[in-house]
Amino acid sequence: MKGFKPSAPFLLLLPAIVVLAAVVVLPLILSLYSSFTPFRLTRPETFFVFVGFRNYLSILSNADFWWAFGRTVLLLTIALNLEMLLGLGLAMLVEKATRGQRILRTLMMFPMMFSPILVGFQFKFMFNDNIGLVNNALQSLGITEDAIPWLIEGHLAFIAIAIAEIWSSTSIFAILILAGLLAMPKEPIEAARVDGCTPWQTFRYVTWPFVMPFAYIAMTIRSLDVARAYDIVKIMTDGGPAGRTELLWTLVGRTAYSDARMGLANAMAYFSILLSIAFTVYFYNKLAAARAQIGAEW
């Protein structure tokens, strides 16, 4: 190695590079590689059998996987839209508050302060058909006689999960949209009022275009969140009943650890990441367009 003299910056960065390589790059490469093998945790030797795209091809014809994929997209669509509507409403209410706005803002953040696992347990308890708060309340109020099998019937379980997701994350939308509302200059709104707008028209033509970029930022964050939803579902239904609430990542987790088919699971995971990338690209484009539209300088 005569004459090889690494520069000081390289040497100083080397420890960081080594650590990153060990904990990020190497596992990434290994997992990518294993998605091309029939690797099973119970049979380590299978790690060295290269099967090319067989795992990927089998995913394409795997009905369970496509159901989980579709269900994830459905949950994403429902949760994001409802969260945005609720978050927008919440933000506009808080913005109207002239006193105690700081406290309201802090209170709004509460759901985000709980671990998703705990949120899962909490909602599992609330939606329990025998002892749950929800059924208890519905029955006490005389809305229904029978216990509703929230987490037992497939559609209801999906709704329950969506509710838990929405409860825990609406505040992301609320906070970001509120930031937009607070940053918004007030004169265009007054100009719109003078120009003949009703309150609804003022919102539709002036406030909303301004707040839209902020909503798209929240959308981007949340689409990544929901696309990798795992913990709440794992706790509340564990993908059940009979796989009716199985999402992409609960399926990946089950395939990897319960079925021990790590190679197949990794192939699913890499495929699922495409979904996240697609959503990210989509919302980033929307965000850029919305920003250009309001002439934002950030």
């Binding site: 265009p188 007054e190 719109a192 003078v194 301004f210």
Partner: peptide, 13 residues
């Protein structure tokens, strides 16, 4: 009525 504001108050979008 119509009003002209100090900060112009144009609709940026």
């Amino acid at each position: 009525i119509s009003m002209v504001f100090q900060s112009y108050a144009l609709y940026p979008h």
